[in-house]
Design a protein around this nucleic acid. Sequence first.
DNA 1: ACTATCTATAGTGATATAGTAGAGTATACA
DNA 2: TGTATACTCTACTATATCACTATAGATAGT
Lengths: 146, 146
Amino acid sequence: MKITYKSDYALKTILDLALNYHNGVVTLHDLAKRLDIPVNFLEQILIALKNGGFVKSRRGKTGGYLLARHPSQIKIGEVIRLIEGSIDPIACVHRGYKGCRDLYKCVFREVWQGVESATSNIIDNVTFEDLVNKTRLAKESLMYSI
Amino acid sequence: MKITYKSDYALKTILDLALNYHNGVVTLHDLAKRLDIPVNFLEQILIALKNGGFVKSRRGKTGGYLLARHPSQIKIGEVIRLIEGSIDPIACVHRGYKGCRDLYKCVFREVWQGVESATSNIIDNVTFEDLVNKTRLAKESLMYSI
DNA sequence: ACTATCTATAGTGATATAGTAGAGTATACA
DNA sequence: TGTATACTCTACTATATCACTATAGATAGT
Ligand code: FES
Ligand code: FES
């Protein structure tokens, strides 16, 4: 698995929307500014997240974006899979890798499958509710330390 | 972690040399032919493996390549790290990732670290001796099935 | 000397990444 | 009804990485 800027931005965007879950919509402009992401790039990411069923949008003057589901119902693995397409360390685990002529007899294959399932085990067990709580805890302990 | 052709080829090369551990040297040409890797490309990989201390070479007419260590002393993780440079799912786990301005407070960081250590746990526990045994077993069961 | 081998470095086409740019659509509200 | 403010969609581009390719040279055995 490789996390690109695109999926990094997507995850931070969902987290921001999760932190604002009870505050109505958040505009593209606000998200871009807070997360320091180029507006036009974030735009494309939000369309993908919308098509993936993670966010909803409201158009017009009072428009903006909001989560389509409760933060506890979104796992970071789902978002990564949508943006990155797959989780494999090597393309042949899933298919379409030319080097994999001898798939059925390649002794490395089960290593790659092991890596994939270990990775899934982690990213499919973290929800955005977990991350919201962690963020709030971090903010709190920061306040006490000042 | 992302396995490219280069590291895939490197691993298969080391495995081939491990299978021939008691047969003296293997030439670049033979390796390239058996593994179906472009000669000039494999050449570069072998230089890297040599500089990494995994293989040794003999020049001249009776030259070729051989393992620098016993197959039981080479873990696949070491080879991957040499060729790929790192194992991180995201560059910022290790350093030099621009998106990581807010490293110290990013709540995703420990997820990425978890993925990295789970991956290490797998690839640092498989030696080429293991793979040699697995290859021989597979070949054996294939013979019985015919 | 000759030839089979390894060594070293430069170049190249294809694809992916991380954006930019700009025209178009929908909605609230004055 | 007009217009400001938002979202939508498509096309383009610069840079880097990947997977080679090409070529000139060094070394060792016969
Ligand atoms: S060639 Fe596909 S797993 Fe080895
Ligand atoms: S920005 Fe580096 S771990 Fe999140």
